[in-house]
Write a protein that binds this DNA or RNA. Sequence first.
DNA 1: AAGAGACCCTGGATGC
DNA 2: TGCATCCAGGGTCTCT
Length: 271
Amino acid sequence: MPELPEVETSVRALRDSLVGETFSEARIYWPRHIDRPDPQTFRERIVGLRVEDIGRRGKYMVFSLSDDETLIIHLRMTGHLAVVEYNAPLRDHTHTILGLASGKELRFNDTRKFGRLYLVRDQEEVLGKLGPEPLAPDFTPEALATQLERRSMRLKPLLLDQSFIAGVGNIYADEALFHAGLHPKRAADSLTKSEINALHAAIQKVLRMGIAREGASIDRYRKPDGTRGDMQNAVAVFRRTDEPCYHCGAPIRRIVLGGRSTHYCPECQVL
DNA sequence: AAGAGACCCTGGATGC
DNA sequence: TGCATCCAGGGTCTCT
């Protein structure tokens, strides 16, 4: 499942092959992928727009286009983007194809069809509610403390809330809490200053590790070129239910919080 | 504000 | 081998 490190990895790869390209057509085979505008308008409006830069905000890929337009793509669970030659064999579940003036194509493949494309002039209408970027300079331990002290939610569901922190998903939330030594059910406003510092450091540590390892290919995530990342080989708790904790040997436990599976070490992360 | 649950989807796992 | 059922997971929505 693409989270911040997986999206960042994909953005970096696409930047090389896509910046400078101009869209020549849009072929939409699953219209519900187009969140806005309506698919017909999307199809007409994207033609002739040039990709000037590709960035990332949380788990969203942000394509800055000519004419002050922005293409925003969220991969959700199984979305995958790749730039290929127009005559490359078509894979199953390729639901949208954006033709490029060079003859190549940007193909959006998404088995579970949760991914979304947005073509907007004001990107704030899509990104406006996102919380801070966890690797940005202004995300300091003090900033995190200010956010935490006014919330009483349990840490795990809070970390998954994109308006609290942008980009953290189920893998990196579990990993960050393990590295911080914090129980997933701890109330946000109950943390001491040193625990907040530990959480802040752990969030940045696991995200940077994920980027350095080019993402976690735990389910179906692949880089744009189809190869795997390496972060799945460095997880401490995620999907390691009943396996021994690398730190203390206790079996990793799995519980469900906020409807999401949650993995933690009952010895290293006491409530 | 917090928490629970439904929904969208499909492939893979599990059960019989 | 084959069929039915369950489940994960990001984000959004509804209800309490």
